[in-house]
Nucleic acid binder design. Structure first.
Length: 296
DNA sequence: GCACAGGTAGATT
DNA sequence: AATCTACCTGTG
């Protein structure tokens, strides 16, 4: 059986990744449908299937046979937010006066915030509570295989909210979603009853969009901010999970601060693109770049 | 067997 | 308004 993928092509004008920051961007918890396979990554979003590899200092890509190359290339540019200059944004972060952030920036230079489909980002992060990244990926694959439309290479897209609204909670439970199945079912029913609600939310100013997301069952502040950051390009959104909370309280000496206070600190200290700083810190904490003893 | 994992919502103080 | 606790399930 021939490879269902076309030839490797050089991605001219690719974002300035390093090998490290490419891996962290694709597989560091922003997105859950990339998997490493040999010397390349294979990923899916919307109806796109793409392979990416870092070779000889250049980024290469290959698209599935039967999918339109020009369409996929445009989707790549959107997905990687090539219109955003993350190198310039890094310079605006306060790393010169912040040794914790400086260590993270040095290790993960080139890290990007993806611009994923809003609807899929909501689904993935509704699956994410108290789950580790490999488990979230497994759930997404199971749900896609069970409920999603077939793609060019025979794999499956994630189901849309219309399909999720139709399928019923037991079917979601079967996909190992556990208590998250009820949240997804209820959210799907809500979205089905409110045509255009998701699109209006994506288009709304950040504070209003966050307030709307918080109306959804199973969406609290952390998940809302993940959806805004990774699915709507709102770089000011600063998701605080257990890792980031630990970094802030321990490495920034903010013991005793509550979540709302930490949100204020992040906005004031990191500024307009605090969410980008968050991703550097999150990556560094997981990688152990921020000394573990400082995080206890 | 049992604690714990990139949370949230509802109950209880 | 702050602080518990239940909620599913895979992993160590």
């Amino acid at each position: 059986m021939p490879s269902p993928f076309g030839p490797w092509q050089v991605w001219q004008d690719a974002p300035p990744f390093t090998a490290v920051s490419l891996v962290e961007t694709l597989d560091g918890g922003q997105a859950f449908r990339w998997r490493r396979s040999g010397d390349f990554f294979e990923g899916r979003w919307g109806r796109h299937v793409v392979r990416l590899r870092y070779a000889a200092g250049q980024l290469g890509y290959a698209v599935a046979e039967g999918s339109d190359t020009a369409t996929t290339e445009q989707a790549l540019r959107t997905y990687f937010a090539t219109g955003t200059d993350f190198e310039a944004l890094t310079e605006t972060l306060p790393w010169r006066s912040d040794p914790v952030l400086a260590a993270a920036v040095q290790h993960f230079r080139g890290l990007r915030i993806l611009r994923q489909p809003f609807s899929e980002t909501l689904f993935c992060f509704l699956c994410s509570s108290t789950k580790q990244i490999p488990q979230i990926k497994t759930i997404c694959e199971t749900v896609a295989r069970d409920l999603g439309e077939p793609l060019a290479d025979g794999s499956h897209a994630l189901p849309g909210w219309d399909a999720l609204a139709e399928c019923g909670e037991p079917r979601l439970r079967a996909a190992k979603l556990g208590y998250r199945a009820r949240y997804i079912h209820q959210t799907a029913r809500f979205l089905a009853s409110q045509p255009g609600w998701l699109e209006a939310t994506e288009a709304a100013p950040t504070e209003e969009a966050r307030a709307r997301l918080l109306e959804l069952p199973g969406v609290g502040r952390k998940i809302a901010d993940c959806v805004l950051l990774f699915g709507a390009g709102r770089l000011e959104a600063f998701p605080i999970d257990t890792w980031v909370e630990k970094i802030l309280t321990c490495a920034y000496q903010l013991q005793g601060w509550k979540l709302p206070q930490l949100q204020d600190f992040a906005r004031i200290h990191f500024g307009e693109t605090a969410g980008y700083a968050q991703q550097y810190l999150f990556a560094a904490a997981r990688a152990g770049v921020i000394a573990q003893h400082k995080l206890d």
